[in-house]
């Protein structure tokens, strides 16, 4: 089990080693000590390994992740798991802005809160936030599911495309073209699966409300001009 202490070795060497891992590597569980808020930690990994970061990470932790399971035993800065393709990123603390931005796949779990623009332009990722999310979350979100156990800030789902948003707590306000929709059995199924995968117990899918796109801005119309 490789342990990389960033107090003595460099982030560049760490990321280079992670990128060089072959698909069948037997170095499958990495520990990173003393991350000290460094940026782009474990960014661009493309191997089925587990990487545990023991401490706080800076911007773009696990950026563009493919296949890997990345666990942060701390908080993360802006853009955790941005543009993730697959795999799993689990933040045990809080996340800053733009968590899971533009991510295409995989699962992002945040045990604490996520700041503004959580899930912005998400393109297929599933995001589960156990705390609350900040304003302008899921702005222009295209696909995937955003699940929030706490509250959501202002302008949730502004200019939303096809992402499904599930919020258990209060929503401060909905953004342009985002509306509440019925929570049907197929949505409860999706929720149950994601809650299970995120390790949430004792919470029923029926406690959530679903929000989605009214699809009113999908084709430009002059009478909608004030919404743009």
């Amino acid at each position: 089990m490789p342990v990389v202490d960033l107090a003595v070795s460099s982030k560049r060497d760490l990321n280079a080693a992670l990128h060089a891992l072959p698909a069948n590597t037997n170095e499958t569980h990495w520990h990173i000590a003393n991350p000290d808020g460094a940026h782009a930690l474990a960014a661009g990994v493309d191997a089925p390994v587990t990487i545990e970061i023991d401490g706080h990470a800076g911007y773009y932790c696990a950026g563009m992740n493919s296949q890997a399971t990345i666990v942060v035993n701390g908080n993360v800065g802006v853009g955790v798991a941005e543009n993730m393709m697959s795999g799993r990123v689990h933040v045990k603390g809080d996340a800053s802005q733009a968590a899971g931005a533009t991510a295409h796949g995989g699962l992002l779990v945040i045990d604490g809160n996520a700041s503004a623009r959580c899930g912005i332009s998400m393109k297929g990722v599933d995001i589960v936030v156990k705390g609350s999310i900040g304003p302008m979350s899921a702005f222009m979100a295209q696909a995937g599911n955003l699940v929030v156990l706490g509250d959501a800030g202002e302008a949730l789902g502004d200019s939303l495309y096809e992402t499904r948003i599930f919020v258990r707590g209060a929503v401060k306000s909905l953004g342009a073209d985002c509306i509440e929709k019925d929570l049907r059995p197929e949505h409860e199924e999706i929720l149950a699966k994601l809650l299970h995968e995120a390790g949430v117990e004792g919470v029923s899918p029926t406690e959530f409300r679903r929000y989605g796109s009214a699809r009113g801005l999908y084709n430009f119309h002059v009478d909608n001009a004030s919404a743009y």
């Binding site: 661009g44 911007y59 931005a101």
Partner: peptide
Amino acid sequence: ACRHPDWTGPDDLEIKIEELREITDW
């Protein structure tokens, strides 16, 4: 969109470029 989703301003851009360099091994 007219702005990038995960950075604003030159200080963030520097960190974004660093990320892209890390991902592509410089």
